[in-house]
Design a binder for these strands. Structure first.
Length: 285
DNA sequence: CGTTTTTGACCTGCGC
DNA sequence: GCGCAGGTCAAAAACG
């Protein structure tokens, strides 16, 4: 734990969201130590990017984060199409796009020998990551998507293991990692990697996220699922639509501290409207 | 019986 | 080069 305090330059890859005590409250629970730990998630943790969720509460601050209201937000969109968004990082870990050829890294069909990739795939490309810290008793928070666990590892210096999940939807290679903070075991750190290329499955074993968001809070399986978290997912989901329609440059709104809000303006009248409460959508604009 | 979880082995990147 | 830690695979087990 000592060695982790190297100040690396954050760049446009990883986002740290605030956590909330639960979906009914908006009080932030921020534990910097845990945050640091969250940063350690990534072997490439040179890339961290704060997010401004102006309609979702305050931005988490952290010595590593270098919060800058003018910095482009997030993200998630990043490695897909816009090389510009990778600005600032010294072509480190994210220089090639393995999704270019197919969907992904280590799909099960890929033989190990290929994986070793002598020569070919130099560095494995990583998707954008978003980390949430959530106060929750359960580790695997219901988020509307279906996940299959594909691994679990013990985490150094932590009594709690880290679990690895993959979205079960075909061709969707979104992954997430879940681990409990050893500093505060009540906090679950969930890291999403990649973007869903599909909508939230309607065949959920429970109410849709949207339902939940639109006022049935406290009911159903998602009760433990924090609102920020849900909101991110909703936006993440709709980003797919957004891209499909607008596939270009709306994201570049410098000076606006909330790209999300900007984004929301774009998708506001689409599907999102059906599932996200309007006040939430309007809040920022 | 199909799907998901478990878990040990293996691979990769990094620091020394 | 070696060892460590993180990440993934894949066979077997468990589950519904």
């Amino acid at each position: 734990m000592e060695d982790q305090v190297e100040h690396k330059n954050p760049s446009l890859d990883e986002v740290i969201f605030a956590s909330v005590t639960d979906c009914l409250q908006s009080s932030l629970v921020m534990d910097y130590n845990s945050l640091e730990k969250a940063f350690k998630f990534s072997p490439y943790n040179s890339s961290l990017q704060p997010i401004s969720l102006t309609n979702m509460g305050q931005v988490v601050n952290h010595p590593y984060l270098n919060l800058n209201p003018n910095s482009p937000i997030i993200s998630s969109s990043s490695n897909e199409a816009d090389p510009k968004e990778n600005v600032g990082d010294k072509n480190g870990p994210m220089e090639d796009h393995n999704e270019g050829d197919q969907h992904g890294d280590g799909e099960s069909s890929k033989p190990l020998s290929t994986k070793q990739g002598k020569g070919k795939r130099e560095k494995k490309e990583r998707e954008a990551r978003v980390a949430f810290m959530t106060k929750s008793e359960v580790e695997h928070l219901e988020d509307g998507y279906r996940w299959r666990k594909y691994g679990q590892k013990a985490v150094k210096n932590s009594p709690y293991p880290r679990s690895y999940y993959r979205c079960t939807t075909q061709k969707c290679n979104v992954k997430k990692r879940v681990e409990r903070s050893f500093q505060d075991p009540s906090i679950v750190i969930t890291t999403y990697e990649g973007k869903h290329n599909h909508l939230i499955p309607s065949t959920l074993r429970g109410p849709l996220v949207g339902e939940h968001l639109s006022g049935h809070r406290g009911s159903g399986l998602l009760h433990s699922f924090p609102r920020y978290h849900q909101e991110f997912l909703m936006m993440n989901q709709h980003h797919v639509n957004y891209q499909a329609v607008e596939s270009t440059s709306h994201r570049q709104s410098h000076g606006n501290s909330s790209n999300y809000s900007n984004h929301q303006q774009v998708v506001d009248y689409g599907l999102l409207q059906d599932i996200v409460p309007s006040k939430l959508l309007k809040h920022e604009s």
